[in-house]
Design a protein around this nucleic acid. Structure first.
Length: 706
RNA sequence: UGUCCCAUGGUGUAAUUGGUAACACACCGGUUUUUGGUACCGACAUUCAAGGUUCGAGUCCUUGUGGGACAACCA
């Protein structure tokens, strides 16, 4: 029994420290505080697994608290969906609570703050207040209403509450410090007037508390020991503390807020606003579209709760920006399903096989293993007959010896059945194959134990008996975006990167008859193809499967390699990207020079056919830098400029405006080398001259412009 | 131009708090296989830079560089 010591993440370390410093274990109390204005996604899963995981680890309660202070955006539909998702993940909350439960208490405390001279009513326009607020680099100025008398504030606030004012006309503000370096401390708004129906409090209130005023106080009311949120709230912490301090009694638990980095996934977007946009504009069919990174989307796609929890665990938490490779998520679901999903046979792109020496009208029920990874999974019977479907891709009239599948004159094994040999094909007038005529070896039946059945045949194919097969619909999903980080491009809309082929509808697939009784949510491995689950749209008459994830496919890799007879291109690009990564990190001049030399050599070896695509999706400094170096050291431009002039101009313009000075330098260098294009960028260049602080770049700019 | 946060292989995280830089994914190669799946074995590859403290620095200090957050009557 070796108990492995698992390292603590930084939040667990903070908790351990607090425990060591006298906080008792029974005081630990966590919460998950979603705003019911959208569906939960895989990023929220990180927070859910973190908070509920902490609850399990320390045997501490975890509250589910809906942060429902903005009736304009929040709806009961979302509350229900969120609860369903958390339950589905397998977590149990201690209490189901709502920030709106505390509206009265919050109101009472506001009165107290007014009485203490720490809050005032302001009736300026939001524009006026925004101006007075200053900027991150300039201090703000006091509101003319800042010094109203307590009595007047009380009276105005009462009128706000009683609905005597228009929406937007008055707010209650905390009186803190308009010159504070932290903008959140510059007399933040505590209450605004919103004459909206609230999903829980109805029309009881027409003033609603703001997030900051609500969150810390709610944590305090619930005696939350550790209030864990994402990094963008870091600068709110000072205000959180200030608010809590105004009401803290001094002898009970005072909550603390700590922040961690939100989790991003490659090839998708994670902001609720953007996900909502995808739904509303019809790019996907709904919040639970299997292509969405929402919990409900992943559930419909066939992901298991365990796979999502495992993913959260492996991905870990930290305080740095991150983009986790979606391949890790896919690994987690494949790993889970490999152990649990029953294997079945399904043919997605059927071609007919006729076994010429198999008796007409005969059928046999052959034994098939349900799951070789699970000893308790048992067996089932699958029907075999003279006419079968196999995958089109599994047959070639002729092929080299790397192709282990069916080809004319060669043998292959049908999984759980016989060894067959392809004899001839029947084609239509267009040369399309209609039937493959095969013979079978009657003594080779799988599991029969005969010498023939144990013959080593390189390939094994899946199949279905035409007479017994069930026609089904299969939905094949690919990533929703073609770019690794679709929303990281400053000047481009993330929707430009939507993958037009993210859904492939197949209505002509066939599955073995054991699947007749499959019901919504059931998961299977279609052997040699991937993991599939029964979609919500499924009916008894019309079977519908979603592909959760394909199996690893080393044959696809071999084929791909064969295609790239000249591998120079991709390899060179990848190598270039790697080198420029080092270049950007290195600050040693000699290193940089030698790296640049290497890049210059490599640039000459590149083929340019992929370059337009790469330019379009360039996001990082590394990518920009690489392609610029390629331009500056090869004849790529000449070739690209003919067909992709706009693309190049757009790319260079963006590069000129990048923050990274190495990127800017290469972009300027580009214009210096190709001086004829100077005029295309003249406005940008002039702007740069005024602001450029890097002397190397400034020098070059001067050379170009004079 | 201000304040704060962050920086470890291609990606995501570790490093018992100053003591041999490790794990997983991805990629590449191989073994096994009635799934070109799984399993197993192997290879590749990492501390942003400079200076300082120290017998010893990924870890502490200083400076620089790069990335991010902050100016909603959103959360």
């Amino acid at each position: 029994m070796s108990e492995e010591k698992k390292s603590l993440n930084f939040l667990e370390q903070i908790i351990e420290e607090d425990l060591a410093n006298g906080l008792t274990k029974d005081k630990l109390h966590f919460r998950f505080p979603p705003e019911p204005n959208g569906y939960l996604h895989i990023g929220h899963a990180a927070s859910i697994c973190l908070n509920f995981g902490l609850g399990i680890k320390y045997n501490a309660p975890v509250n589910l608290r809906f942060d429902d202070t903005n009736p304009a955006k929040e709806e009961q539909e979302y509350v229900d969906a969120i609860k369903k998702d958390i339950q589905w993940l397998g977590f149990k909350w201690a209490n189901e609570l709502y920030s709106s439960d505390y509206f009265q208490q919050l109101y009472d405390w506001s009165i107290q703050l007014i009485n203490d001279g720490l809050a005032y009513v302001d009736d300026q326009s939001s524009e006026e207040m925004a101006i007075q607020k200053g900027t991150p680099t300039e201090v703000g100025t006091n509101s003319p209403n800042r010094d109203r008398s307590i009595e007047e504030n009380l009276e105005l606030f009462m009128k706000m509450k009683n609905g005597e004012f228009q929406e937007g006309s008055h707010v209650l503000r905390a009186k803190i410090d308009m010159e504070h370096v932290n903008m959140h401390m510059r007399d933040p708004i505590m209450y605004r007037i919103l004459k909206k129906h609230h999903h829980r409090t109805g029309d009881d209130w027409c003033i609603y508390p703001m997030y900051d005023w609500t969150h810390g106080e709610s944590d305090y009311i619930e005696q939350i020991s550790h209030s864990i949120c994402t990094l963008e709230f870091k600068s709110h912490r000072e205000l959180y503390d200030w608010y809590v301090d105004q009401v803290y009694s001094g002898d009970d638990l005072r909550p603390k807020q700590r922040e961690f980095a939100r989790r991003n996934l490659s090839y998708t977007v994670m902001s609720k606003r953007k996900l909502l946009q995808l739904v509303q504009e019809g790019h996907v069919k709904g919040w639970d579209d299997p292509r969405m990174p929402t919990i409900s989307g992943l559930r419909r796609r066939g992901y298991t709760p365990n796979s999502i929890k495992k993913f959260s665990e492996i991905a870990g938490i930290s305080k740095r920006d991150n983009v986790t490779d979606v391949a890790l998520l896919e690994f987690c679901i494949k790993d889970d399903l490999n152990k649990t999903a029953p294997r079945v046979m399904a043919v997605l792109n059927p071609v007919k096989v006729v076994i010429t020496n198999y008796p007409e009208g005969k059928e046999e029920w052959l034994t098939a293993e349900n799951n070789p990874e699970d000893d308790n999974a048992g067996n089932r019977e699958v029907p075999f007959s003279k006419e079968l479907y196999i995958e089109k891709e599994d047959f070639r009239e002729e092929a080299n010896k790397k192709f282990f599948r069916l080809k004319l004159g060669k043998e292959v094994r049908l999984k759980n059945a016989y060894i067959i040999k392809a004899e001839c094909v029947v084609k239509d007038e267009n040369g399309e194959i209609l039937e493959i005529h095969c013979t079978y070896d009657p003594l080779s039946r799988s599991g029969s134990g005969t010498e023939e059945s144990q013959r080593r045949v390189k390939g094994t194919l899946h199949w279905v008996s035409i007479a017994h097969a069930i026609k089904t619909e299969v939905r094949l999903y690919d990533r929703l975006f073609i770019d690794e980080a679709p929303d990281s491009h400053k000047d481009k809309d993330f929707k430009e990167f939507i993958n037009p082929n993210s859904l492939e509808l197949n209505t002509n697939a066939f599955v073995e008859p054991s699947l007749k009784e499959a019901t919504i949510g059931d998961r299977f491995q279609f052997q040699r193809l991937g993991y599939f689950c029964v979609d919500d749209d499924n009916t008894a008459e019309h079977l519908i499967f979603n592909r959760t994830v394909p199996l690893n496919d080393s044959w696809a890799k071999i084929e791909k390699k064969g295609e790239q007879k000249k591998p120079a291109n991709n390899n060179a690009i990848n190598e270039l990207l790697a080198i420029s990564g080092k270049y950007l990190k290195s600050k040693e001049n000699d290193d940089r020079l030698s790296l640049l030399d290497k890049m210059s050599d490599l640039s000459k070896k590149i083929e340019f056919k992929n370059l337009p695509e790469l330019l379009k999706t360039a996001a990082s400094n590394k990518e920009y830098f690489t392609y610029l170096v390629v331009f500056n050291n090869s004849n790529a431009l000449e070739i690209l400029a003919k067909e992709h002039a706009n693309l190049v101009t757009e790319f260079i313009s963006a590069a000129l405006q990048m923050k990274n000075s190495y990127v800017r330098y290469q972009a300027v260098e580009f214009i210096y080398i190709n001086s004829s294009v100077k005029d295309d960028y003249i406005t940008i260049l002039k702007d740069m001259v005024a602001e450029e602080r890097n002397s190397m770049i400034a020098e070059r700019l001067e050379l170009i412009l004079n």
